[in-house]
Design a protein around this nucleic acid. Structure first.
Length: 268
DNA sequence: TCTGACCTGCGA
DNA sequence: TCGCAGGTCAGA
């Protein structure tokens, strides 16, 4: 599920509602999503601790909980839901955070592709590429990432080791807005195309955050509400619908085992 | 570079 | 019943 805009929406909501809240205790179920920590150790490490910060890097969200740092990768279907919306989604709850003010925040994941880590120092994310909404993501740095890379531009945009945060929905939308064919080798883009693509990466992701993310299937905000960005998509899941620019039908193909939507007329 | 595996639910 | 779904990784 969640790409950068959905994770950022969730991060903002958790920060708004739970920053400086104290976790009284945690109930964590024995599921495969725990990576470098057992559910019981995870629960013990957070008990009676205060959330000091809620951060995001790429598709990862992490909290500073006094001296420990839980890190959440939401996989395809991970969501956080508050106790007020729990009745809407009561199944597949893997972690419940009980706060000392009586509130509860639940982590749910139907498909169990999420990954939970716990660190005792600030995570570095050295294995990930540049976060496209960070200060480090400059046009010059982006140019350097593209040169010498023969791989298809869509694969490059989705490669988390190169750029951290873009998934299938937004890769499709960014390339459509930039009028670049998904299979173009990255090193074949002109300077003008690179500049346009750079702007559109930030614009598409920022617009999606403004719309609280895309709810195509599972994604919900912590209050159980759908995002709104699905109402603003131009190509994703729009096969046979008319292209915004030329009116010819949007087409679908498979790239790197992922459904890819594009306009064969406008995207060169 | 590609495929299958990991999971569950939904719609055709 | 089958294919597909916002992700990632190991192995061929």
């Amino acid at each position: 599920m969640p790409e950068l805009p959905e994770v950022e929406t969730i991060r903002q909501q958790i920060q708004q509602s739970y920053l400086h809240a104290t976790i009284a205790y945690v109930k964590a179920q024995p599921v495969r999503i725990f990576q470098n920590v057992s559910p019981s150790r995870f629960s013990r490490a957070l008990k009676d601790k205060k959330i000091m910060a809620v951060q995001r890097y790429g598709k990862l969200m992490y909290w500073k909980v006094e001296k420990v740092f839980p890190v959440f990768h939401l996989g395809m279907s991970g969501i956080f839901i508050s106790d007020t919306s729990l009745s809407l989604y009561p199944q597949h709850i893997h972690i419940s955070f009980y706060f000392d003010d009586g509130r509860t925040l639940h982590f749910q994941d139907v498909r169990k592709f999420s990954k939970i880590f716990l660190y005792h120092q600030p995570p570095s994310f050295f294995e990930l590429g540049i976060d496209p909404l960070s200060k480090n993501f400059t046009l010059n740095n982006f140019k350097k990432l593209l040169t010498l890379k023969k791989m298809a531009i869509k694969n490059l945009l989705m490669d988390q080791h190169i750029i951290a945060g873009i998934g299938n929905i937004y890769a499709n939308e960014i390339l459509f807005r930039s009028r670049i064919h998904p299979l173009r080798p990255a090193n074949s883009l002109t300077l003008e195309e690179i500049s346009d693509l750079f702007k559109n990466i930030r614009a598409v992701l920022s617009d999606a955050i403004d719309h609280f993310g895309t709810s195509y299937t599972a994604y919900r905000t912590i209050e159980g509400e759908r995002g709104e960005n699905q109402n603003f998509l131009n190509v994703y899941q729009k096969t046979t619908e008319p292209c915004l620019y030329c009116g010819r039908p949007i087409q679908k193909m498979i790239v790197n085992s992922r459904s890819t939507f594009y306009c064969p007329i406008c995207q060169k």
